Simulated scan of single mutants.
Amino acid sequence: MEAIRRLLIAVLASLAFVAPHTTANGLPAEVRLAAIEGVPSAKAARQILEIAYQRLGVGVSVMEVPTKRALLLADNGGLDGDLYRVDAVASNYPNLVRVEFPLLQGKLLAVVRETENHDLPHSPKNQPLRVSVLRGAIIAEDKARELGMEPILADDYDQVRSLLELGRVDVAFVSDVEGISPLTNEHWHRLKPIRKPVTTFTFYHYLNQRHAVLADHLAKVLEQLEREGIKAEVLESFRRDQHSKS
């Protein structure tokens, strides 16, 4: 009888431990997401997702980590998902499930010192153009190599800018995500993007495959937030805040 009593206590204790970790509809009570360090648009993405998760009764915590570590943590289940990625990057991680509604739209801009230029500068002495890119910005790194450029990695956008201003690179790659970009900062006023974006991209939210059901729910909620104008309000608030700090 004592053995049975202990077994019952152990079972009840395990149920008490599991219960708070799921909602009434079977969704997790909280998810832990990875986010890339030092990216301006990540804060906007985080707020949009927090609103979406709140509608589902799911809490969110975010850990800022280097980009490749973020993907690994989401893929191997160390965390529940990755804040946002493009398909070309996430497709290399088989355990990630895409939330099938676009989170953010963006474009990659080439920034130069000469304001009259409308195209990429010519390579000096038939050497590859040197381009400063934010470390971990995989889209920018891949595009630079695709165009035959030499990517020079920078730890933050201030360093990206400094490398261009000091002439250590020929061009800088800067992301503009829904109008959220370091180019609005007054420190960039002497530098101008060329007219045509280097490329455009779509960010999606990704979850570990164990949350496939949650991904389906989130896609519907994100569509609702866009239809109701809530997503646009969040983005406009970030754009205003960005301009007020410029």
Rank of each mutant, 00 (worst) to 15 (best):
R135L: 11
E226M: 07
V133H: 01
R55L: 06
K220T: 13
H205D: 13
S244R: 13
G106V: 04
K231Q: 10
D119S: 10
Y204M: 08
N25D: 15
A35C: 06
E64L: 02
P40K: 02
V213D: 15
E64C: 05
D241T: 07
A35R: 03
L225H: 09
T115G: 12
F201M: 04
A232Y: 12
A74Q: 05
G106W: 00
L83H: 03
A219N: 11
L218G: 07
I139N: 10
A137R: 00
Q54F: 03
E223T: 06
K220F: 02
L120C: 10
H189N: 13
A35I: 03
H189M: 04
D142H: 11
R113G: 02
Q242E: 14
A110I: 02
A19L: 14
E37D: 09
L108F: 03
S244H: 12
L222Y: 00
G167K: 01
L96S: 10
K220W: 01
L191G: 15
E114C: 06
G38A: 05
E236N: 14
L71C: 10
L183K: 04
S14G: 07
F17R: 09
D75Q: 13
D170A: 08
P40R: 03
L96K: 03
V65S: 12
T22F: 15
E64V: 04
G136L: 02
V97G: 09
R161W: 00
I194M: 06
D176A: 07
V65M: 09
